[in-house]
Amino acid sequence: MNGVGSVRELERETEKESILHLMDGRVKLILLIFIIVYAVFSTQIVVLAFLELYLLLLIYISHVSFKSSFKRILLLLPFGGFIIAFQPFIHPGDVIWTGIFGLQVTQQGLMWAVLLMSRLIVALTSIVLLSSISPMQEVAQSFRKLGMPRELAMIFSLMIRFLFMFYDELHRIMHAQKARCFDAFNKKIPYKWRMKQLGYTVAMMFLRAYEQGETIYMSMVSRGFSDQSNFYQDRKKKLGTTEYVYIGVTVLLVVCLQVLAMTHFYELGVLGMNII
């Protein structure tokens, strides 16, 4: 799956129709951030397992493809996974395995790694779910409605608009190269030359972005843009029953999990143990 394809695929997911898709963007954004924050502060694996199950249920309700969601989670996992992979070896505790060069795995280190991995999976599932049920423009609107600083909000909105345009631009350049038989992986052609062509492509993208930036600024100025300019905000949408139900269910789940974590989960052994 290349970059262009994945962006378009993600867009198609956001165009599906479900209760979650139709919900107010602010509610989706706040609740998923709420889940991420709660997951980060949780120290019991069982709590994270319940949160993950809840997120999977939401993915099911929103008709988002499980396959593409898992694929995206797997693609993102290595970024945090790399740090987690070291934890069993560097965390002090009871040694459970000794390998070559004196490498030792501790039980506490292993449990810490599992906890971190669980947190990471919950956080990534939340992000994948949010990006699958909310078009990027809706996320930008929600951030603005929630009081994101004007300059940041404008940069964010511009980025969303031109991300797609530059993907199209890149696609066109790649097409033009393919039409003249260019293949970056063709081993019959010198490696250095192929790298040079890829370098030209990136340079061309920067140049076009720069030129486009100049013209866009002119067109914005033409419509009265100044340092005081604001983006329009849709004020018509008000929270409905589904939004309140979603907020209620999520908050209730977190409260129940927290109560159980403090009173009963320790009985579950390793899964319910507090890992610090």
Binding site: M136, Q137, A140, Q141, S157, L158, I160, R161, F162, M165, Q212, T215, I216, M218, S219, M220, S222, R223, G224, F225, S226, S229, N230, F231, Y232, D234
Partner: peptide
């Protein structure tokens, strides 16, 4: 009012409504 040759130079907001509202907001 100036309409630029390439609409992609002019439409910079993430949605149609936000773009059309840009001038009046200013």
């Amino acid at each position: 009012g100036i309409v630029f040759q390439n609409p992609d130079d002019q439409l910079f907001a993430p949605t149609v409504i936000e773009d059309v509202a840009f001038g009046p907001m200013n």
